[in-house]
């Protein structure tokens, strides 16, 4: 399916240690859940996205999720769609992701790359895994790739020691939860509700059940995303999940600000609120 052959000298013999899972375990030992923060590469521009992701870590994000801008983001709501359109119109390239990963990984936080699958198909799954690993990335989150179709990526992520975060949804059957748990490394991304990214007044009641079921299906770590935008929501989710994933609320803070510095200030403010929410709950 991809053009690149696996090179045998890169294949690890033992099981891959997940950097993201390690971080989640450290936080669990501290008695709390992680705050996972998403921002798209190239928004407002490449340098701006490095500054924003770095500010996010400084303000309390534990794990960074960097989005590769894509022309057809079917799992994203309007806030992220608009940010990504802006990034693409500004000329951001997939290879810019590597530079941003490298810069943000320097903060010490695990950096996952969130990407729709076609940019990786085009780049070559093996080459993409090689380059993300070389840049210091921890792995990929793949919203439109299910384990059933992920043969190339399973091999490439093993070869390069990368995490592979697949998603589960409230509609997932027990069999699919087990398949996804078995195929994931780092954590399983539990979509709190049936829908796309975006802030919501309430986090779906399905989320707690889904986390429980996903653990029962064999997942060691489960983080919850979709719809979380307030400290209270973060606290609610942090009570039962290994991590709280926030995206649209952070992107909106940047997008709504009149200028770059104001955007970073607004971002630090929202991250601070969410981080306090996560830290308010002892697990």
């Amino acid at each position: 399916m991809t053009d690149d052959q696996l090179t045998s000298d890169r294949t690890t013999s033992g099981p891959v240690t997940s950097r993201t899972a390690q971080r989640l375990d450290e936080l669990r030992a501290e008695g709390r859940a992680a705050l996972v923060g998403y921002l798209p590469v190239g928004f407002p521009d490449v340098e701006g996205s490095i500054a924003a992701a770095t500010a996010m870590v400084e303000a309390g994000v534990d794990v960074v999720e960097l989005g590769v801008p894509y022309s057809d983001p079917v799992m994203d709501g309007l806030v992220i769609q608009h940010a990504v359109e802006h990034a693409l119109a500004g000329g951001v390239r997939v290879r810019d992701t590597l530079r941003v990963v490298e810069a943000v990984a320097a903060t010490g936080a695990p950096v996952l790359v969130m990407t729709y699958w076609n940019p990786v198909v085009r780049y070559g799954a093996e080459a993409f895994a090689r380059d993300i690993a070389a840049a210091g990335g921890a792995g990929l989150i793949t919203p439109d790739l299910i384990p059933d179709e992920a043969g190339d990526w399973l091999a490439a992520s093993d070869a390069h020691g990368l995490d592979r975060v697949f998603l589960v949804a409230p509609s997932s059957t027990p069999e699919r939860l087990a398949l996804t748990a078995r195929s994931s490394r780092g954590f399983v991304y539990a979509a709190s509700t049936m829908g796309v990214t975006g802030t919501r007044a309430t986090v779906g009641a399905d989320a707690a059940r889904l986390v429980r079921d996903t653990r029962a299906a064999g997942a060691d770590h489960v983080c919850v995303g979709l719809g979380v935008s307030t400290g209270a929501q973060a606290a609610e989710v942090a009570a039962y999940a290994d991590g709280v994933i926030v995206g649209s609320a952070f992107v909106r803070a940047l997008a709504d600000a009149p200028g770059r510095e104001e955007g970073l200030d607004a971002l630090r403010g929202v991250v601070g609120e969410l981080a306090a929410g996560v830290r308010s709950v002892t697990r």
Binding site: D144, I146, P170
Partner: peptide, 15 residues
């Protein structure tokens, strides 16, 4: 052949 499949979010698989 090499074409087709299901490259969609997990949320749609049950449907």
């Amino acid at each position: 052949g090499d074409f087709g499949g299901r490259f969609v979010p997990e949320a749609l698989i049950e449907a």
